[in-house]
């Protein structure tokens, strides 16, 4: 049986997993299970459903070999997959139409950023701090869209404001987030 330590890189773990060392999956779960579960729980709101989705994501990660390390670091990939799959589930249980196509194909091939090179806890501290520095109205729209999967049109209805205002706030919020993250994202 292969032995892994906290120093074993994600890439080494993935190679081991693909070579048949299943215990690598447990190590990857120990690293990123919390991130996946957190995103799933925020979107789905039901702990049982978040557990189920987390289990599916890690199981499929192992079973389907879809992850390409050249395209995104694992934390970014799993965070986006968790959001995308959670939105899939919401769409299935909702009569609302949501466009998920872009999200499903949105894991880009770009250079790894300094932020993504940091540890997960460093990433979390940096992003949380950057988000906390946004104007409330910008953060509200960004978070409703990203963390709750609510479309801009539905946000406009819920907040009783013009759609154009929602779009402007979301864009300004993202630009400000990028500015706060600065060189950490390129």
């Amino acid at each position: 049986m292969a032995r892994f330590s906290t120093d074993t890189s994600d890439i080494e773990l993935i190679h081991s997993l693909r070579a048949g060392h299943q215990e690598a999956l447990a190590v990857l779960y120990d690293r990123y299970g919390g991130l996946v579960y957190t995103v799933a729980l925020r979107l789905l709101k039901q702990p049982a459903e978040a557990e189920d989705l987390t289990q599916d994501i890690f199981f499929n990660f192992w079973k389907q070999n879809k992850y390409d390390p050249g395209r995104a670091v694992l934390s970014t990939y799993l965070g986006l997959v968790a959001r995308s799959r959670a939105l899939d589930r919401i769409a299935k249980r909702s009569t609302q139409q949501r466009s998920l196509q872009r999200l499903q194909g949105s894991i880009p091939e770009r250079a790894m950023t300094p932020l993504e090179n940091a540890t997960l806890s460093e990433q979390q501290e940096t992003v949380q701090q950057a988000l906390s520095q946004l104007k409330d109205q910008q953060r509200q729209v960004l978070e409703m869209n990203f963390y709750q999967g609510i479309s801009h049109a539905d946000i406009a209805r819920q907040l009783d404001m013009p759609l154009g205002t929602v779009k402007t706030r979301a864009r300004q919020g993202l630009i400000e987030l990028r500015r706060r993250l600065g060189g950490a994202v390129g």
């Binding site: 447990a26 299970g33 579960y37 289990q55 990433q123 949380q128 993202l174 990028r178």
Partner: peptide, 28 residues
């Protein structure tokens, strides 16, 4: 790309929730 990178790390902006201990065993 910088804006995309900012957007894509938003999952890390959530305050982490510790999953229940039995979930790890179920996955393994």
């Amino acid at each position: 790309q910088a804006l995309q990178a900012s957007f894509e790390v938003m999952p890390q902006g959530l305050v982490p929730v510790v999953p229940p201990a039995h979930l790890r065993e179920r996955i393994v």
